[in-house]
Design a protein around this nucleic acid. Structure first.
Lengths: 338, 338
DNA sequence: CTGAAAGCGCTTACAG
DNA sequence: CTGAAAGCGCTTACAG
């Protein structure tokens, strides 16, 4: 309808200077109650909206943070990003969510744009192990989630993936005679931790054979992936005698569901012949049949912790060294597949 | 590392004015090849990055678009938004993705912030039927996806939900003796279209009973929802004689998977006793067991069409009337559940 | 308590 | 081909 008014026009309409209008808007400095009322009325009447771009330029703060995420389509990331965004929004910040598609090039392009837009902070989720800090050489506060930062004094947050893997593996070991870990490329620090938790736990067990399948390339075609999983499970199962069970720990729920389907197709019984545990407790874990046993990450806590720390650093607080690394507790959710 | 340089400093370093630097950066106006080289070199050497905030303020363009989405956690929306974002990024625009959580309040708050940030355009996805245009009264270009806009001259894009529902229903009618539609609140225009497609098709059939279950409230607790679905299916199935089949058309794949689980729990056979069709062809449709028959939306096309039109309008093109409404083709994907 | 003025970092007529 | 100057819409010492 009407075009946007500037603070100057509000000032004229109110019969004061724009300095005064700015002061009442920002509750900053002194002004009489009378002027305040007057100005506020004019603002209301005209639906005045401050221009954040101008404000940002002047104050050198954008009230915006950038979030880099590998794949918003993955339900764990989607939930995490959604929580972060809504949490930040409550605190008066808006988020620019950038989908890097796991491409280093896109990542650094985004980083450039983001700094160009004067973001006040950055949240980097997962992705390649280390990143050329060149792009974020300017001293923007950064929080790393599930991604090992180059510098040890960066702030790093993640679930305790190692512990989660240990829990899952221990549970399987109680029930099966042979055990496998399935991953799809252990590029991320979280995947590496989970693998380590699996291996360490298996190493302590006696009388059990184990095997790791790494699907490597992230996307090598769904059908091919499914076939590889199926033949892998088939081969592994063949090692067992009748009445023995195979245990499979999948690096995430998506993979676990894939395994589920493969096992169904092989005509094997879950969990009587093959026991399966996933990771993340994503929504589909509850929707699969049978329902998936999995390791739950506390996404709310993860998001809140990341935002709180970021906001602190943005506000100029120096974090103590012991706050640089946070490992959040995980929980094994027992359902029907193991 | 080094602090950000301004165009003025680049100018000083190059021995020219900032006006000239601006010109070479923007390939705008005339300058000698020699100055160009010189300036470019200084820019390279110092990793100069333009300040987009300042540029936006000056040019009154932010190279940013706002995307409003009800729930990024829903895989259809996630995929759609991801495509839009990446498409727009290629064209030099960044996106601010806002999760409204289906709240009208949050929606209008976001709209305010977005206009405050001088977004060049808006993409509104699904959500409440009409929205108080008050928030977007300033003449920002808007594209509506799956949401009936208040004004008929607004630009509206969606899949042909009606057609999709007709295809699914017709397919079911060939196989079953009783048919149901399950939705969860038909607030969105797309849900309404699908329901209409179902009803119209059933009305044309003879000798078939039909029933609609609306789960109403979006989130009434997972367990309760599952129970309602289970008892509904159980009741409906009881109407049939042995060897007769029940057909269920679910408003989206998530619901369909829920139905799948309910049917499993009832010990009924899919598709021999109960046939199921979903909508969206989301990733989980392929991961369920048995794999889900569903109606596929062309997300790529949806995203590309939306972005193309938005960009046209941003560039000031007037769209012809016949371009105001676009219905994209859908496809019935036959898999194992129907 | 309030205003005039400078300045954030750009772009763009205007003049030469 | 290039520069000086104005201005985008704010905020904030500085002065009164």
């Amino acid at each position: 309808m009407k075009n946007k008014l500037s603070i100057k026009q509000i000032a004229d309409l109110s019969g004061v200077s724009s300095a005064t209008v700015s002061r009442v808007i920002n509750h900053n400095g002194r002004f009489s109650e009378k002027t305040r009322q007057k100005v506020l009325k004019v603002i209301q009447d005209n639906h005045y909206q401050i221009n954040i771009v101008a404000k940002s330029l002047r104050t050198q703060k954008s009230y915006t943070v950038g979030i880099l995420v590998p794949d918003i389509t993955n339900s764990f990331f989607a939930q995490l990003v959604q929580k972060i965004e809504s949490y930040l929004f409550e605190k008066g910040y808006s988020s620019i969510i950038c989908n890097t598609a796991r491409s280093a090039v896109k990542e650094s392009e985004y980083l450039k744009i983001l700094t160009s837009k004067m973001v006040d902070g950055l949240i980097l989720i997962s992705g390649a192990k280390t990143l050329k800090n060149q792009a974020i050489s300017t001293n923007i506060p950064v929080i790393y989630i599930d991604r090992q930062p180059a510098s040890s004094k960066s702030i790093f947050i993640s679930s305790d993936h190692y512990k989660g893997a240990v829990l899952a593996t221990q549970h399987l070991l109680k029930e099966v005679e042979r055990i496998c870990f399935i991953a799809q490329g252990s590029h991320s620090s979280s995947a590496a931790e989970r693998l380590k938790g699996f291996e360490d736990t298996v190493a302590k067990a006696v009388d059990i054979d184990s095997r790791v399948l790494d699907l490597l390339d992230y996307r090598q075609g769904e059908k091919l992936e499914r076939e590889r999983i199926t033949s892998f499970v088939n081969r592994e199962f063949a090692f067992l005698r009748p009445s023995q069970r195979l245990g499979i720990f999948a690096n995430n729920d998506g993979l676990a569901i894939n395994v589920l389907a493969a096992v169904h197709n092989l005509g094997l019984k879950i969990p009587e012949q093959v026991a399966i545990i996933g990771f993340d407790d994503s929504p589909m874990a509850r929707l699969s049949y049978p329902q998936l046993t999995t390791v739950r990450q506390d996404i709310d806590l993860l998001a809140a912790t990341a935002c709180d720390k970021l906001l602190l650093v943005i506000k100029g607080k120096k974090l103590a060294n012991e706050d640089a690394v946070t490992k959040l507790p995980v929980e094994l959710i027992l359902r029907a597949t193991a």
